[in-house]
Design a protein around this nucleic acid. Sequence first.
DNA 1: CGAATAGTGTCTATAAGACAATATGCC
DNA 2: GGCATATTGTCTTATAGACACTATTCG
Lengths: 239, 239
Amino acid sequence: MSQSDFPPAQLLSMALISVDVVALRLHQGQLQVLTAPATHPKATFPRALPAGRIDPQIDSELEQTALRQITQLTSAEPSWLEQVETIGNNHRDSRGWSLTVVYFALLRGEPEKDLGEAEWLDIGIQTTACHDPQLPDLAYDHQSLLLTAIERLCSKVQYSTLPLYLLPEVFTLSEIRDVFNCILGKSPPMRSIRNRFVGGNILEDTGEKRYGSNRPASIYRMKECDCAQLFNRLYQTTQ
Amino acid sequence: MSQSDFPPAQLLSMALISVDVVALRLHQGQLQVLTAPATHPKATFPRALPAGRIDPQIDSELEQTALRQITQLTSAEPSWLEQVETIGNNHRDSRGWSLTVVYFALLRGEPEKDLGEAEWLDIGIQTTACHDPQLPDLAYDHQSLLLTAIERLCSKVQYSTLPLYLLPEVFTLSEIRDVFNCILGKSPPMRSIRNRFVGGNILEDTGEKRYGSNRPASIYRMKECDCAQLFNRLYQTTQ
DNA sequence: CGAATAGTGTCTATAAGACAATATGCC
DNA sequence: GGCATATTGTCTTATAGACACTATTCG
């Protein structure tokens, strides 16, 4: 904040700052997290979340720093980006006080065009107890950051249009059900998904059909809207 | 983050950091926000949110910094404290890149014991459209931080036990209704409040009664629990 | 008793869930 | 036709809301 002058010497006006990103996608029925190599010699595991520092030449907002961590690793544009939390303390970095701003991104399951060091790691869902996902090993405390982001995802898919942000631009209703299954290990009945998304006027029918060895499915698209819409109930079957 | 060495010179590893707090209470049927004097000479208004910097002698976690901003101004212990967002950019502080971590606190409506410079300012609710509260003038961009916190409050009271954190340790059901009225300008019917809070086994009946010039009301207390409990629906009448 | 507020009973409205029934493509 | 999946119909359930009715205290 700018309201006070430089504080007296015993107060800390500056600290190490980094931005970490949990970028998730659905790939072949599997929830995956984007990782980068863990470069620090003390790293306990070889992979870590994409992370970096503010580049004052490029970034004018924190969100741009987060976005840059993703675009350095994959050419896909995130369909969703939000801040999760800021962790700040004096024991996370051996050099002293540090802050990490954690962002949460979703990418559409499109043909991937990853760059250099990127690697997507699977996130397993315990179908018996979806509250305990099997997370890949990550360096530093990144597994716990991942857990926080996954918990937000699990919560938010149940009362918002967030599931649509993991799908391609166009999709069928069954694919929405698949998103729930991949994330939570279970899904609301198609009846409920249909009532909420079609009945709620969230989707636009493209008029196209997806053909398979069965009755073709209508292909939908999200209606124009700036951000995820919220419903006023949770699904019960996914809890 | 600790995983990378000091970044190359063009990257910013440090930035100005402050912690701002939106501390709210209910006082005589009025939602109020805790303010401190705005000390900066360029301040546009005389009052500002409590804000400060990390004190490395005292704080080991960011939350402690937030808590300290409150306890410097009032002797009451917050009943609720959560992080709202972190704002980071290069134009908020004239000195360059800065980060502000914003916290959101609730205080129980107890006899106040404010210290020195503290002042509580009223927050008006437009009963016609509760989406547009009348916020007091605050220095810097603090009015917009306040707005974000108020929006979170308005949202969260509708699907959690958060209303209870603005009440004293013991309270009647009518006082829960009053919380809704103060915050949103309207309230769910008593029937719905009763079903949710009493039927949901959230409250403990103290056995005591509050007497007035009418039928006495049962006095309740929150049941033991670490954090606010969530319901799986929003009230409809408060939207 | 009357005023005032607390609390209950009961019917309606809404949206989710269960599940049977029907539709429509491919083979 | 038979299979597989999509879609619809309809009944049930859970919880909020409306509102009338009863309960209990004070003055």
